[in-house]
Design a protein around this nucleic acid. Structure first.
Lengths: 172, 172
DNA sequence: TAAACTAGTTGCAAAAAGCAAGCAGTTGAA
DNA sequence: TTCAACTGCTTGCTTTTTGCAACTAGTTTA
């Protein structure tokens, strides 16, 4: 439990907590896909995470304050994983990573539409999105006037999926 | 050499290239510390990277287009590693990671002063810094009017180091 | 009451990271 | 001209992490 960090550099410390192949993927699925249970995270995983690694990452992320876990009142075995302020504040990093990936990597259209919207919306949209994640995950009061960024991102994604299902030759 | 990616998600693809414990550390040292040779990267490494891992990462990053390597004309054995446009565009990610690390992790004052300046300067400063990295690494023509962001970051760092050397009890 | 579903475990193989030492070629000073 | 120091790595070995597949104990639903 005694964590000795390699250095006090903020980039290094961020990397020590998030710099592996799965931690950010798990947080991404909770954040953008609203997957809150173990099975949802396991079975809907685009990248196919293994159950032992998912279990390990969830445990580690809870220990380190990036996620919280509560029992689901509707099912004695289910746990509900939620973002914390610490992970909600990763939104700008996700947005920048998405923008970079879109520019330099062979992304698919379907999976990059959300990154595009986040990039185009810029910091004001990120702030709205973070406020909304606080409603979803931290029981913050909902701002009645605001349209949902979360829903907008999901709708855009589903629209692309539907369009590509209709004309599968144009996919990717 | 046949790279099969786990998915076409931009965040995943970024993670597949940079999501390990050392790649971004190496790029950080080249970018902010202007370390251009193998030995410089090895011996001045704050985190103590091993030589075999450094060799492997340099090779991988060159293969993947994040660094380029040229022979140093002044020494037959030396290679000079440079950033590419692909890695220069990581500046916003570094800035956001630095800001996040400063907020949530136990950073040291000395090593976080640059992150603080980048955060305060915002995107306009990042753009200036990227322009300057293009001069240093891509042989872009220097803009004569601009004061150097790189020098400013370094000066701020050295100032903190000097201050803490004078009053070592206040050091983190 | 049995099938299906829940959150994980367990055991083992493969890959990656980490450590310490070594190496062939190059340079610069005596 | 010779030798120590320096160059970018490499090698051999151990430890840690990842990945795969099967399995488990308890819970819910039909």
């Amino acid at each position: 439990m005694n964590e000795a960090y390699r250095s006090g550099c903020p980039i290094n410390l961020t990397l020590e907590v998030l710099g592996d192949r799965w931690s950010l993927i798990v947080i991404r699925d909770i954040m953008f896909g609203n997957r809150r249970h173990f099975r949802e995270l396991l079975q809907n995983s685009e990248e196919g995470i293994a159950s032992n690694i998912l279990a390990d990452r969830l445990k580690r992320l809870v220990e380190r304050g990036l996620l919280s876990r509560e029992d689901d009142p509707s099912h004695k075995q289910k746990g509900i994983y939620s973002l914390t302020e610490m992970s909600i504040r990763l939104v700008p990093i996700f947005a920048e990573m998405g923008a970079w990936g879109r520019r330099f990597m062979p992304v698919s259209e379907e999976l990059s539409i959300r990154a595009q919207l986040l990039e185009e919306g810029g910091r004001p949209l990120w702030e709205d999105f973070m406020a909304e994640l606080r409603v979803l995950h931290l029981h913050a009061p909902r701002d009645p006037g605001k349209p949902s960024v979360f829903d907008r991102l999901r709708a855009a994604y589903l629209e692309v999926v539907a369009r590509n299902a209709a004309a599968p030759d144009a996919a990717e």
